[in-house]
C-alpha cells in the first residue's frame, strides 16, 4: 500500500512540474515583451501580431487559431519526436557501450601509462564542444573518407554521424563516472570477501563490482538526457535531422519573423508543446530510473516498501 501511495505522490509531483512546463513558455511568449498581452503589443510591432498575420495566410481567422492544430497532420510531429528520441537514446547507448568497458578497465588497470592516458582522453571528450566534434566527424567521414552522408534523414546511414557526435561528448562524462564508481566498489569489503572464497577475477569485476557501479551510472545518466536536449538543438540543425529539437529551435527562433506555420514555423503553441514534451521526457526518464533502482537494489525496495 505504501508503494502505491509513494507512486501517487510521485505522479502528483510530476503533474505540478508538467503544469509549470506549460505555464512557463506560455507566460514568456504571451506576457513577455512583444507578446500578445504585453504592453508593447499595442504598438503594433509584437511578434504576436505578426504571427496572427502569418496564420491568416494558411488558416482563416474566424475559425480561431487554436483549431488550426486539429487539422494539421500529427504524423510529422510524431516523426520528429521519434527521430529525436532515436538520436538521444542511441547516443546514450553508444556512449555506454564505449564508456562502461573502458571506464571499468581503467578502474582495475594498474599500469601507470593507462591511468594517465585514459583520463586525458575522457577530459578531451568532455571539453570539446559537441558541434566541433560534429564538424570534425563530417570532415573525416563525409569529406576525407566519404562513406557517410553529412546530413539529411533519408537512410539509416544518416543517423550514424549525429548519433556518434552526441555520444562522443557523453563518453568522457560517463567513462569518468564509471571509472570512479568501479574503483570505489572494488574497495568494498565484499569484494575482498569474494576473492577470499575464490571467485574468479572477472566474475568479481562483472558480477560483484560492475553491477552496483552500472546502477549508479544509470541513475546519474538517465536524467542527463536534459543535457542531451541542449546538444541536440545544435546537432539536429547541423545534420539537418528533422527532429524535435530542430523543430523547437526553428519555431522558437522564427517568432516575429512573420512566417506561416508549417513552413518557417511561426507557432507559439508549437513551442509550448515541444517544451512540454521535453519536460515529459526528462520526468519519465527520472521515474524510470527510480523504478529501475528499486528493481535492481533490494535495499531500497525493502527499506521503503
Amino acid at each position: 500500500m505504501d508503494i502505491l501511495r509513494r507512486f501517487a505522490s510521485r505522479l502528483a509531483g510530476m503533474l505540478v512540474v508538467l503544469t509549470l512546463s506549460i505555464a512557463t513558455p506560455t507566460v514568456i511568449q504571451f506576457y513577455g515583451p512583444g507578446g500578445e498581452n504585453s504592453k508593447l503589443a499595442s504598438q503594433g510591432v509584437s511578434a504576436w501580431t505578426r504571427a496572427k498575420t502569418a496564420f491568416a495566410t494558411v488558416w482563416p481567422e474566424e475559425k480561431g487559431i487554436l483549431t488550426f492544430h486539429l487539422h494539421v497532420s500529427t504524423m510529422s510531429f510524431v516523426n520528429d519526436f521519434f527521430s529525436f528520441m532515436g538520436l538521444a537514446i542511441g547516443s546514450i547507448v553508444i556512449a555506454a557501450i564505449v564508456a562502461v568497458p573502458v571506464g571499468t578497465y581503467a578502474a582495475i588497470q594498474q599500469k601507470s601509462w593507462f591511468r594517465t592516458v585514459l583520463p586525458t582522453g575522457f577530459l578531451v571528450s568532455q571539453s570539446i564542444p559537441t558541434y566541433v566534434i560534429g564538424v570534425i566527424l563530417i570532415l573525416l567521414f563525409s569529406v576525407v573518407w566519404p562513406i557517410l552522408p553529412p546530413n539529411g534523414w533519408n537512410s539509416p546511414l544518416c543517423a550514424v554521424l549525429p548519433t556518434l557526435t552526441l555520444a562522443a561528448g557523453n563518453v568522457g562524462y560517463m567513462g569518468k563516472f564509471v571509472q570512479s564508481a568501479v574503483s570505489e566498489t572494488m574497495q568494498e569489503g565484499y569484494i575482498l570477501g569474494a576473492r577470499a572464497r575464490g571467485v574468479r577475477k572477472w566474475n568479481i569485476i562483472l558480477k560483484h563490482a560492475m553491477k552496483p557501479s552500472i546502477l549508479t551510472t544509470i541513475t546519474f545518466f538517465a536524467p542527463q538526457i536534459a543535457i542531451l536536449l541542449n546538444n541536440a538543438l545544435t546537432i539536429e540543425a547541423m545534420f539537418a535531422v528533422p527532429g524535435l529539437a530542430k523543430l523547437f529551435g526553428e519555431t522558437a527562433s522564427a517568432q516575429g519573423m512573420g512566417l506561416p506555420p508549417g513552413v518557417g514555423m511561426q507557432d507559439q503553441y508549437m513551442v509550448s508543446v515541444v517544451f512540454f514534451i521535453f519536460a515529459l521526457v526528462v520526468l519519465v526518464m527520472n521515474l524510470f530510473v527510480d523504478i529501475l533502482y528499486r528493481v535492481l537494489d533490494p535495499r531500497i525496495a525493502r527499506l521503503t516498501a
Partner: peptide
C-alpha cells in the same frame, strides 16, 4: 576461509 571485521560491508548486500 576468512571472517572479516565488518559484516555489513563484507557481505554482498544485494544478495539474500
Amino acid at each position: 576461509q576468512v571472517v572479516f571485521q565488518n559484516p555489513s560491508t563484507a557481505l554482498n548486500q544485494r544478495m539474500t
